[in-house]
Each structure stands twice: as structure tokens, then as C-alpha cells.
Design a protein around this nucleic acid. Structure first.
Length: 664
RNA sequence: GCCGACGUAGCUCAGUGGUAGAGCACAGCUUUCGUAAAGCUGGGGUCGUGGGUCCGAAUCCCACCGUCGGCUCCA
């Protein structure tokens, strides 16, 4: 006897062995045909799983429930795997194929190890989609089968699926008495927790295979590279179309596309991969952003320093970067014999130089904290496959600073760094970010220094983020090699995560470099260091910013803030006067003196995302005004040149992106 | 670095073995124009680089360089 309670509170009794599907059928045939899965006592279950005797709460999951999409996508992965096996042969190995619910582009994937000599390219995807459609049309039921580990291994051995056997062995290490569940759909069987759609027909036709990629087995580069196929699936064809549309729209915001269109930066094959050239328009954005930040640093007691691009290799041995991170460095410069025995290194980071500046004079506790700041350019030999626009480059700037303080001052300093980082994000309206606490991985040997130091630093960070009541995740293995850190992570236009601001607590380099200060007790003590970069790097930050604003920068950052557009060149003289007035007020202005018609001039300025246009013709000359137009808000009417200047200056100072409000 | 794809004019792209094309952009001329593209004319390409096959290669093959999507990495 099975007693169930439905979400509306009503109760039903069923015979032993009844399924959630039977419950749905009892309510209405429509619900039964719409049923995707069931929530039984809070656990997602197949609708065909018999309910055990006793009392249960049951909720029928249909496509309207948020849990349903994950079930659909998971089944889509199985159907794709079945299709791939049909097309590429049963000696194709399949490893893992999860549903992706948080990815911007993809909804599921499956990783395959294809038979010797076979490969899948993007051109093959339609063929696989067709095969999937056949499987869907056949409405093959998915049957859940539970097996003992031994039976499961025997079954997988029989069909030659060695990755599955490895996965079973792994699972047994954690839970030796586990019952393993499998799903069989026709001639295809896969180990899977479930639940799944009751049959492949329920998958429908709102799915699409998106791309093929390589992926290492278990994410380990020492393992074999498998072939991963990414796809997406929805219940409704309209949702799929909207998804594809959303991706296409997002790609128009891609900073690499806008960077070219708006003349912001250039990546030139002749210069070298990952070595961006900043064009005049992009340089203005950097100049404004860095200028603003420099002002904020001075307010906070930072002192500016400048250091060279190269230094003796030995510095990096002391810091510990070399030779551990040799693969990430540009090759050492070796000089003629006898000179600089050890060679020079293009700097991968600024800290050793700042440390030498700290050491250059005796420090008293009264001097601390010492905050040395520099927009320092560093060079890292990133793997070629990693390079991406401005977000991952080989030569970039850090809005770097190193704070040297007493252990007592440390947490207040960390807190102030968090404040500054948040101010940077808030000023630019970047409010969609997450905070990651990067801790050492206790199983890895890549970290330097004593365990006690790490404990101290990790606890300093925890206390600060708790005090500030921040949302964060702790991630072991994400620390810098010298200390744990607080990272601010944002997403780009297609959902890839990038670390921007970072605050790193370091007890180790002060030891390695033997840093000291004299305390009130007249004895030498060891300072603590903070490495911090609120933007992370202007390159990456601006790359993200381009996408955030879709190239339409707020007035204070806009490379050109206003375009003066004479209706014809009869009014060029007057237009030049307007340009002078704006430039005298410190605004960046372009004059469009082309022979084009006014519509073309407006179009050009709008496409270039120039915030304001000042149209001048006979009427404006008469009344000493300009006809103002905003790039998105459109025609804003006429106003005097003086009020136009005032309006722009006010908007510039506000650092906002609100269009100028025109007094009527 | 690894898997897969791509590379033709400044940009976006067409061209699958037989004399290299379009739109935009650029230059000249005409038009002097009122809120998202006036008209005509013209210049511009060692088809990423190097090698090979072929009577003949943008097109087929190999290597390299670069870019894109992933994976790995990210001090």
C-alpha cells in the first residue's frame, strides 16, 4: 500500500508498486503525458520508478518546473552518445556527459574516445543531429537498471567501456557498497544517477549540437585527449531560437570585435601574439581610468614608484618564481660571459623590485604601512592556446601595489584593499561579479613557505571577509604560490570567467627577502606583505569593460565625447567655434567636416558610439545654439553652447552614463 | 601545449584546378544638403608564409605562423 500527498495537500492511496506516472494518470491524462520526472519526498526520481510502500509526498515535474530542463538535457546527452556510437561504431568509448545548467552557451556535453583513425569535426554535427532525430522518433524507453558493482563491471567489460570501469572503481573507493544505477535505451546503456525522460520521444526537436572540442580525460593534461561535443536542448523550439539569438547578440559585444570597430587596440601578428598595441582611442580610456585610480591611491596614502622591465634573474630565484615557474616566463637573457653571470629576466611581476625599494632604507614601525604603487608592465609566456584578445595576453600592465605592514595592521589594510576594489567595480557599474577566496591545495607541492604562515594568512582573509559580510566561495588550489588571496571574478560576453581585482596576503616573500622593521621594542621584526591590484590589469579590465558597455563608454571614458556636425560646410566656421568652446572646457571633440549629408554624419558618429552630437546649421548660427543629439536617446533639442558645455562637464564629473537632461 | 576549425583588399565576406570579386571604407569630381548611409569615377590583393603535386594552384598535399571554440594552465 502506497499513500501519497500531493502539493495541494490532497492524499491518495495506491496499490503497492505504483509509480509516479500512475499518480499523474490518476490526476489527468494530460498531466501524465506532460510528466517529465517526479519529486518524491524531495528527491528527483523517474516517473516510472515504483514507489515503496508507506507514505510519500509526490510532485509531478513537467516542463514548467525548473528541474525539468536538467533532466531533458541529461537525456539529450545520452541520445547524442547513442547516435555517436551508431555512426562511429560500438568501439567508441564514452566517458562523461553531464547537463550544464549555468553555462551561457551550452546545455550539455559528452566526451568520447573515438576509434583509432576517426575524428569528429563541426561539419559532422548535422549528421549526428539527424541520427539523434531518428532515435527520438523511435520513442525508445529509458529503463533504469540497478546493479551491484561486480555485475556493473562485468556488463561494462562485455561492451568494452573501459572509462566506465575506471569510474566504477573510483566510486567504490568512496562508497564500497554502492548500488550503481544504469539507464538502458535500446542497445545503448550508460551508468547514470538519473532521473531521465521516460522515453527518447519526449526530447522533442528543440536541440542543437553547438561545437566540438578536445578535453582531457578527467581534466588532466597527462591523460588522453577525448572529443567533446557540446549541445543545448530546450522543451520549446522558441526557447532554442531565443538562446541562439542571445548568443549572437552577445558576440556583437565581443571586445575583440568592438576593439577593431572603435579603434581601441590592435593585436598584430608582426608584433607577436598576446602583445597588444593600444590605439589612440583605447589609450584615452586607459589614461582616464588610470588617472582616476591614481587619484584614489594618493587619497589612500599610496606612494608611486617606477621600476624597469627587466632585472637580474637572481631576484626571481630569491622570490621563488624561478625555476618553479620557468615555463611561464619569457626566456632568460644571457649576456656575454662574465657579465651578469646568471642573466636577466623580463619581469613576470613587480614585487621583487618593490621589495628592493622597501629594503633600500631602514624602516621603523612608525613608517608602516608602506604602500608602494606602480602601473607596472609585466610579461608572462602564456600558452599559445590561452591567448584571447585583451583578456589573456603575454605583455600587460598591473595596477599593482605592495603594502608592507605590521601583523597588527594587516587586517585593516586588507579591508581597505577590498574597499578600493569594490569602489573600482562600482564606479564602472560592474556589479555582476563573484568573490573567490583562493586557498592552498594541501596536496600540492607548489606552495612556498611554512604551514603556520599559510594558516595565519588564510585566517586573516577569512576574518576580513566575514567582518565585511561578503558572499564568497573558498577554493583550495587557487592561491598564489606565496599566499592565499581574495579574487574578484567577472564573466565576459559568452560567459567565460576572468579574474580582475586580487588581494594577496603574503608572509613568505618577506622571509625569503629577509625584510625587517624596527618595532617599539627596539628589536627587528618581520613585516607582512599584501600584493593587490584592484583592476587586476588595465588590459583585462578594459577588455571586460568594452563588453560591459558594448563599446558605449560613459562620457568620462569616451575617447571622443562630442562630435560637432555642421549641416553643410557653409556652417564650418561656426562649427569650429563650437569645437573651440568645448575643447577649452577640456572636452574631447571631433569636427565632422566631410561633404556628407547630415544623416550620414549622424550615422557615423552614432556607429562610433560618440555620446553626444552637436548639429549646427542656419538656425543654430542665428541663435548661437547647438542642436544636441545623444547616441541612444536621440534628438535632445537646441540649447546654448554654454549650457551644452556645462551639461557635458556635469556628466563627466559624475562619471555616470545618464544622458544629459535638457532644460526645456 | 593539446583536440578541432579557420586565414582572399583597411573591414565583412563570395569565389573547389584555367586571367582574383562584392559591399563598406579610402581618393577625386558633382551636390551644400536639417537628425542613422546622396550620385558618378578611381586606386587598392605575392589569396597568412615556405615547400610539394600538376601543363596550370586562392583552390589539392606537407610544414610552419596566426586566429577562433574548447581542454589544460594562469605566479
Amino acid at each position: 500500500m502506497v499513500t501519497i500527498q500531493l502539493p495541494d495537500g490532497s492524499k491518495q492511496s495506491h496499490d503497492s508498486g505504483a509509480t509516479a506516472l500512475a499518480v499523474a494518470e490518476g490526476i489527468s491524462p494530460r498531466l501524465a503525458s506532460a510528466a517529465i520526472a517526479a519529486d518524491v519526498d524531495g528527491k528527483l526520481t523517474d516517473i516510472t520508478t515504483p514507489l515503496s510502500d508507506g507514505e510519500h509526498t509526490v510532485r509531478i515535474i513537467t516542463s514548467r518546473d525548473p528541474e525539468a530542463l536538467e533532466v531533458l538535457r541529461h537525456t539529450a546527452a545520452h541520445v547524442m552518445a547513442q547516435a555517436v556510437l551508431r555512426l562511429y561504431g560500438n568501439d567508441t568509448q564514452y566517458s562523461i556527459g553531464p547537463a550544464l545548467m549555468d553555462d551561457f552557451q551550452y546545455g550539455f556535453y559528452y566526451d568520447f574516445d573515438l576509434p583509432e583513425g576517426k575524428s569528429i569535426s563541426a561539419d559532422d554535427l548535422p549528421k549526428i543531429e539527424e541520427e539523434m532525430a531518428k532515435i527520438i522518433d523511435a520513442k525508445i524507453p529509458l529503463q533504469r537498471v540497478e546493479m551491484s558493482p561486480d555485475d556493473a563491471k562485468a556488463e561494462m567489460k562485455k561492451i568494452g567501456q573501459s572509462y566506465k570501469i575506471e569510474m566504477i572503481d573510483d566510486m567504490l573507493k568512496e562508497t564500497p557498497d554502492a548500488k550503481l544505477s544504469f539507464y538502458r535505451q535500446g542497445d545503448f546503456i550508460d551508468m547514470c544517477r538519473g532521473p531521465h525522460l521516460p522515453d527518447t520521444g519526449k526530447l522533442g526537436n528543440a536541440f542543437k549540437l553547438m561545437s566540438v572540442a578536445g578535453a582531457y580525460w578527467r581534466g588532466d593534461e597527462n591523460n588522453k585527449m577525448l572529443t567533446r561535443i557540446y549541445g543545448v536542448a530546450f522543451f520549446d523550439k522558441k526557447d532554442l531560437a531565443a538562446h541562439v539569438e542571445r548568443i549572437e547578440e552577445a558576440k556583437k559585444r565581443d571586445h575583440r570585435v568592438l576593439g577593431r570597430q572603435l579603434g581601441l587596440f590592435l593585436l598584430d601578428e608582426k608584433v607577436g601574439p598576446g602583445l597588444p598595441l593600444w590605439l589612440p582611442n583605447g589609450s584615452i580610456i586607459r589614461m582616464e581610468l588610470e588617472g582616476w585610480l591614481r587619484g584614489e591611491l594618493l587619497k589612500r596614502g599610496y606612494q608611486p614608484v617606477h621600476t624597469p622591465h627587466i632585472g637580474k634573474l637572481d631576484l626571481w630565484r630569491t622570490s621563488g618564481h624561478y625555476p618553479y615557474y620557468e615555463h611561464g616566463l619569457f626566456p632568460t637573457m644571457n649576456l656575454a660571459e662574465g657579465e651578469g653571470e646568471d642573466g636577466y629576466l623580463l619581469k613576470p611581476m613587480n614585487c621583487p623590485f618593490h621589495i628592493q625599494i622597501y629594503k633600500s632604507s631602514q624602516k621603523s614601525y612608525r613608517d608602516l604601512p608602506v604602500r608602494l604603487s606602480e602601473f607596472g608592465q609585466v610579461y608572462r609566456f602564456e600558452q599559445s592556446g590561452e591567448l584571447s584578445g585583451l583578456t589573456r595576453v603575454r605583455g600587460f600592465t598591473q595596477d599593482d601595489a605592495h603594502i608592507f605592514c605590521t601583523p597588527e595592521q594587516l587586517e585593516a589594510e586588507i579591508e581597505s584593499c577590498v574597499d578600493l576594489t569594490k569602489l573600482c567595480l562600482a564606479t564602472l557599474g560592474l556589479d555582476d561579479y563573484r568573490v573567490r577566496i583562493g586557498l592552498r591545495d594541501p596536496d600540492s607541492a607548489k606552495y612556498t613557505g611554512k604551514s603556520e604562515n599559510w594558516d595565519l594568512a588564510e585566517n586573516n582573509i577569512r576574518r576580513v571577509v566575514k567582518k565585511l559580510d561578503m558572499n564568497y566561495t573558498e577554493e583550495p588550489g587557487e592561491a598564489a604560490f606565496y599566499g592565499p588571496k581574495i579574487d574578484f571574478v567577472v564573466k565576459d560576453c559568452i560567459g567565460r570567467e576572468w579574474q580582475l581585482g586580487t588581494i594577496q596576503v603574503d608572509y613568505n616573500l618577506p622571509e625569503r627577502f629577509d625584510l625587517e622593521y624596527t618595532a617599539a621594542d627596539n628589536a627587528s621584526h618581520r613585516p607582512v606583505m599584501i600584493h593587490r591590484a584592484p583592476l587586476g590589469s588595465p588590459e583585462r579590465f578594459i577588455g571586460i569593460l568594452i563588453e560591459h558597455f558594448a563599446g558605449a563608454f560613459p562620457l568620462w571614458l569616451a575617447p571622443v565625447q562630442a562630435a560637432v556636425l555642421p549641416v553643410s560646410d557653409k556652417f564650418l566656421n561656426y562649427a569650429q567655434g563650437v569645437v573651440r568652446a568645448l575643447r577649452n572646457a577640456g572636452l574631447r571633440v571631433d569636427l565632422d567636416d566631410s561633404p556628407d549629408k547630415i544623416g550620414a554624419k549622424i550615422r557615423r558618429a552614432t556607429v562610433q558610439k560618440i555620446p553626444y552630437m552637436a548639429v549646427v546649421g542656419g538656425r543654430e548660427v542665428e541663435s548661437n545654439t547647438v542642436a544636441v543629439r545623444h547616441r541612444t536617446a536621440g534628438d535632445a533639442g537646441a540649447m546654448s553652447v554654454e549650457s551644452f558645455v556645462e551639461g557635458l562637464l556635469a556628466e563627466k564629473i559624475s562619471r555616470g552614463s545618464e544622458p544629459l537632461h535638457v532644460a526645456s
